[in-house]
């Protein structure tokens, strides 16, 4: 089944999960399963205030679009919607939505998780933790590359330097 419905947005504004899932459910009459993941800003310690999200305009949308197409083809998804927020997001706010539609639940569960794992390690976003004391950039986690490897996909957070120039 071809990908009939495809949407990617990088925005400061919040999103409405039920609206997003509803749009996917209505993509066509073959949709039997909609699975979504919503990420929220979690308090990470004393004085947690917000996350500040930076991105690479243009590259972000293109790279997410390419991931969506690859995951849709692999799992036979009918629809995919990704919304990623940027800017200053206080604790408790929604950050990211990955929602997918498929004919059956297994493809939808797997497609949603695979796309989220991929997005986490490859889409050009950077998080800064803002506390009452100031801000600090979040370090990438090797576990996120491990999560991607489960799908047979290579992580890109490897250490490169000018020394490796061929």
């Amino acid at each position: 089944m071809a990908l009939l419905h495809r949407h990617v947005a990088v925005q400061a504004a919040d999103f409405d999960l039920s609206r997003e899932a509803g749009l996917l459910a209505q993509a066509c009459d073959q949709v039997g399963a909609v699975v979504s993941f919503t990420g929220h800003v979690r308090a990470w310690g004393e004085g947690s205030v917000a996350l500040e999200l930076e991105h690479y305009p243009g590259m972000t949308e293109r790279s997410i679009g390419a991931m969506m197409d690859a995951v849709a083809e692999r799992f036979g998804l009918i629809g995919v919607r990704v919304v990623h927020r940027v800017g200053l997001l206080p604790v408790g706010q929604q950050i990211v939505l990955v929602a997918v539609a498929a004919r059956h639940r297994h493809a939808a569960f797997q497609g949603c998780e695979c796309l989220m794992d991929w997005l986490k390690t490859q889409a050009p976003f950077w998080k800064k933790e803002v506390t009452t004391q100031g801000g600090q950039w979040v370090d990438a986690r090797v576990q996120d590359d491990d999560a991607l490897a489960r799908w047979g996909l290579a992580g890109i957070q490897t250490n490169l330097s000018p020394d490796t120039a061929g």
């Binding site: 990420g39 999200l53 991105h55 690479y56 590259m59 990623h84 950050i95 990211v96 989220m116 997005l119 986490k120 390690t121 490859q122 889409a123 050009p124 976003f125 950077w126 998080k127 950039w137 979040v138 370090d139 990438a140 957070q157």
Partner: peptide
């Protein structure tokens, strides 16, 4: 050409 730290979205 862009230079940036490892990404931390999601």
């Amino acid at each position: 050409v862009a230079f940036f730290p490892p990404v931390t979205g999601g």
